[in-house]
């Protein structure tokens, strides 16, 4: 019995002149219907590359003449997508799985009206007439909270504000009732008051449609709002995964600690100083040996039982449904979090 979305040992490598860029290097996760998975990480950690791989959007010709090298397995509702016939994947894309992109201005076509673009997405997958499809588009625009949807359906993207465009994008991706929705930084381009509106909308729509949602973001506040489970990516791999509550209150990986310490928080008393992660993200071509976080990890020198630093730590279960990839023992992780990190946050 596999999960609704089951990604196993996914690798996405891009050949470049400088070498092989290992954007995603062995990522596995599962997601059930009605659940939300938040993927967090910094730029270049492989979050977006993962989502494009699930959608089957890494194809030939996209990166010059070179193909992305993808291996592993992606199971969606019992079908393996990577080995499947591209035509079959195309039929699924948009109907079974849909995506909300970060920048609605570049994801919407400037030449066509909003309505036309939604109608197109609907009619590709449904054998309906133009009128019925238009009715559906108006209905969707109404559902995502666009005022006067019967008029705005004929507007062009440039006539919409940023928040309205993002709503239109959401309407377009939900028009076929997809069972899997991937939102890649859906609110990063938006102001905070509009972001609150959009997050609310995504939450309501998920409740209504019961889809599985993957939300990709660098903002821990956003995942805390939406996600049931959180996956922290670093250098193309998962370093920690677990229920949202545990990840925020009992995180185990030093990188997760670093993310939490870097963030100024409105819900706490003023911190004297932020605790940044020193250094910069790793090269994806010459990955540090052993744990990719090793050069930046303040606890790299903590003595560990019979482990050499050149061995890459595997994800191990540290609690119920909670995994971390760190050489420190569970007791060490717990102790350092409780004694050294948590009091400073």
């Amino acid at each position: 019995m596999t999960a609704f979305l089951d990604v196993r040992d996914l690798k996405v490598h891009f050949p470049t002149d400088d070498g092989l860029v290992k954007s995603v290097d062995g990522l596995s996760f599962q997601l059930e219907k009605g659940q939300t998975l938040g993927i967090v990480g910094e730029s270049g950690s492989g979050k977006s590359v993962t989502s494009l791989a699930v959608m089957g959007l890494h194809t030939a010709g996209q990166y010059g003449k070179r193909k992305a090298r993808i291996s592993g397995e992606i199971w969606l509702d019992g079908t393996e997508l990577l080995a499947a016939d591209p035509d079959h994947v195309r039929r699924l894309r948009g109907r079974e799985m849909a995506m909300i992109f970060q920048d609605p201005l570049s994801a919407l076509h400037p030449y066509y009206t909003i309505g036309k673009q939604i109608v197109e997405a609907y009619r590709i997958h449904h054998d309906v007439g133009a009128k019925a499809a238009r009715r559906r588009a108006v209905e969707m625009l109404d559902r995502v909270g666009i005022p006067q949807p019967d008029k705005r359906v004929d507007s062009y993207p440039h006539e919409f504000s940023g928040g309205m465009r993002q709503r239109a994008m959401i309407a377009m991706s939900l028009v076929n009732n997809p069972e899997l929705l991937i939102a890649d930084e859906p609110t990063t381009a938006l102001d905070v008051t509009v972001q609150a509106q959009i997050l609310d909308l995504i939450r309501d729509l998920q409740r209504e449609f019961g889809s599985a949602v993957v939300i990709i973001t660098h903002d821990l506040g956003v995942v805390a709002e939406l996600a049931d489970d959180i996956l922290v990516m670093y250098g193309g791999r998962c370093v920690e995964r677990g229920p949202a509550d545990e990840l925020f209150h009992e995180p185990r990986h030093p990188y997760t600690w670093g993310l939490l310490g870097s963030m100024p928080r409105l819900d706490r008393d003023q911190q004297e100083r932020l605790i940044p992660v020193k250094g910069s993200p790793p090269s994806l071509i010459n990955r540090p040996s052993g744990c990719a976080f090793n050069p930046r990890c303040p606890y790299a020198d903590v003595p560990k039982d019979d482990v050499t630093r050149t061995v890459r730590p595997e994800l191990t279960e540290v609690g119920g449904r909670h995994w971390a990839a760190c050489h420190m023992s569970a007791e060490q992780q717990k102790r350092i979090w409780a004694e050294e990190i948590a009091p400073k946050l």
Binding site: V192, G221, A224, E225, F248, L260, L266
Partner: peptide
């Protein structure tokens, strides 16, 4: 309104978020 719109990085406060002031429109 601006301050209440900031997402709080703490899943335990999910329920508290119903107090958020949602501004209309743009």
């Amino acid at each position: 309104a601006l301050m209440s719109a900031v997402p709080i990085p703490d899943p335990r406060r999910k329920n508290a978020k119903s107090g958020r002031i949602l501004l209309n429109g743009d």
